[in-house]
């Protein structure tokens, strides 16, 4: 059990899909955060789209997913 031998039937391709779906799930959770929360700390009049941390996170996740998709 400690060696995860019960997962030995899972192929490398399926494993890769598990990682990619994990990134999609994280992305979805990030999108669900209220916009007010990700801007917290910046005055209302100074908020721009490039301060939106949701966009930053999605961009990072996309790069990550493309790396795992490629290799």
């Amino acid at each position: 059990m400690f060696n995860f031998d019960w997962l030995s039937g899972v192929s490398q391709e399926t494993a890769k899909m598990i990682f990619l779906s994990l990134y999609a799930l994280i992305g979805l959770l990030v999108l669900l955060l209220p916009t007010e929360y990700v801007y917290q700390g910046i005055a209302k009049e100074d908020r721009h789209w490039w301060n939106n941390l949701k966009l930053w996170s999605i961009a990072v996740l996309c790069i990550l997913a493309s790396i795992y998709n490629h290799f």
Partner: peptide
């Protein structure tokens, strides 16, 4: 501020 704290991790 809080935004910079969060942004530092994502950056």
């Amino acid at each position: 501020n809080e935004w910079h704290a969060k942004a530092s991790m994502i950056f």
